[in-house]
Design a protein around this nucleic acid. Sequence first.
DNA 1: CCGTTTTACTTAATCAGTTTAGAAAAACTG
DNA 2: CAGTTTTTCTAAACTGATTAAGTAAAACGG
Lengths: 338, 338
Amino acid sequence: MANLTIRDIARLAGVSTTAVSFVLNDKPGVSDETRIRVKEIIASTGFTPNVHTRRLNLGRSFTIHVVLYWHTHPIFNQFALEIMYGIFASCKKLGYSVMFTFIDRSWDVTQLMESIHSKDCDGLILSQVEDPSFISLLQQESIPFVCVDSHVKKNSSLPLVEVDYYQASYDATLYLANMGHTDIGYIGSSTPHELHEATFNGYIDAMRDKGLACNPAWIGGIEFSASAAGDFFNSLVDGRFHVPSAFFCTGDAFSVDLLHAAKAHGYNIPEDLSIVSVDNILVSRYVDPPLTTMSFDKEALGAKAVDVLHSMINGEDFPMTTLIKPVILERSSVKKLN
Amino acid sequence: MANLTIRDIARLAGVSTTAVSFVLNDKPGVSDETRIRVKEIIASTGFTPNVHTRRLNLGRSFTIHVVLYWHTHPIFNQFALEIMYGIFASCKKLGYSVMFTFIDRSWDVTQLMESIHSKDCDGLILSQVEDPSFISLLQQESIPFVCVDSHVKKNSSLPLVEVDYYQASYDATLYLANMGHTDIGYIGSSTPHELHEATFNGYIDAMRDKGLACNPAWIGGIEFSASAAGDFFNSLVDGRFHVPSAFFCTGDAFSVDLLHAAKAHGYNIPEDLSIVSVDNILVSRYVDPPLTTMSFDKEALGAKAVDVLHSMINGEDFPMTTLIKPVILERSSVKKLN
DNA sequence: CCGTTTTACTTAATCAGTTTAGAAAAACTG
DNA sequence: CAGTTTTTCTAAACTGATTAAGTAAAACGG
């Protein structure tokens, strides 16, 4: 019951601790007879080897540390839990424990770095973490890590697992065009990140491939806030600009806000304005009308990140960029024209 | 840079490892002069003591293990992340690391129990975990744990941190009554748990205190699913029962479903039907109309759980039940009568 | 049957710290 | 100034496992 050690098992079985260790780790050097006897004693006593000793000996913690960016507005934290579930599921299979840390804007790197230096994990998964100084610290000290769903600049040496936003953007725009829309606007984050540029390019490329013109007035480069999309729409209407028949938004959080603003202006959705976005956050299913969106497997984001990290930790080859493909999920925010 | 040990620091400072250990742990037995010199060397080398050795020596892991129930439907996983954030914030202050495990219905206890037996944590926080066999195992082995947001049966020896659902239910019903409603229905989980009974009692008590009659046809004891509330409403309408002017639902997830069903039947909300519930999940803000709900501090649930667990671990006194009080958050799903 | 290899098992070192017990030096005490 | 106490410091034991090195017995080969 209470605090057994490998020595107790050894004594009960009449063997050395080495023999017990061999049995525990399925190593050769023990006769079948002894092996069975030791196993029986382990089973009957319920002995489980102390994990800290094991970690100390092996110089590995068998733990993955998940660092999550905590957004002030809950709508931006939407799929962190699903990513964590995917991480956990994959870690469970591979025998890793999972620990986590939240960080936010006003965050001090030292406590986390100390924890890493103390060897508390074999590697890290950074979810939506963009802090370049932290990332370069990890790189300098060659600590294995993977960025997941992180809007960081892709540099050749940054392992990423993320949604294929170019594809999402391209497919969504194509979808709107195929539904008969020709006046298609774009609302997305304007911070100069490669990811945002890729997303924008998806829109541009789809418009070009369909022979449609992009009206600069319909392109909303906005900041990452819960009201920016609505503000953009308001400025469009207030400025008496012609409003396009459809908008592609780079995230459901933007769509939800756009929907709200448009309805406030008396627009009926989708009769007067069609909306497509990306993410399929839970909210998008429950707004009125439910949003058509590019959906993807959020758990896979986490699971893939673990797989990549596992390869890094073991010194195996790994893909520098892993893309999760989104697919269109048709609901009721798009009107078919003609 | 690479893998320093306490011996390296000792050598560099010209002292024993014992002295370095004393400095690291702010213990007496070292002169100020030596202490400063050792600290400088530690700072300049960036040495951080190995966490596993520390845990092995002290027989404690300084880690809290969060076990989360994973619901199939995402709407029921809504505030797990916020609870985790609260847990993390409190753990950070107290110097704990945090690890996590998800479990679901088809779940095998052995792997988790092994992990606990291997001393990977000092205590557990169970979020929405109800498995009685698991809980009694923990009790038998006197492993410190706290249930948070768990609809478990209160028995005298179960440490709980949860929302004051009785109060929520009472206040919400009172609110509807004060808005002029007399025909108030109830929709909540019917599984025979004390918590559900408490919630139901809150409704009953408020109705009685207001001198209002409870119509059995308006009381929906439903199961925990994403469509049960709508099903109940449909059966009410299809059975040509008189529909009350207002419903109290024990969770926003039920309200959202009820709202959907009522609108499908041509009811305008709140003109034809008022709805109040509890939880303030993100979705409830974005449905049309936004839901009036009893809101509470989700992060506090997690933070309080850590505080209670910390006291248990240290053998201090702790409150067996900690209640988080919800307050009404008025939005647009309730009509004021007269 | 004797020398070699294999098998089964153990002793002792090791991981990186903490802690006990004790020694030497310094600081009081009367 | 001798005796006691306090301070400063260290050697060695200890945490609970793994693993390298070594030994004795059994199996094998010619």
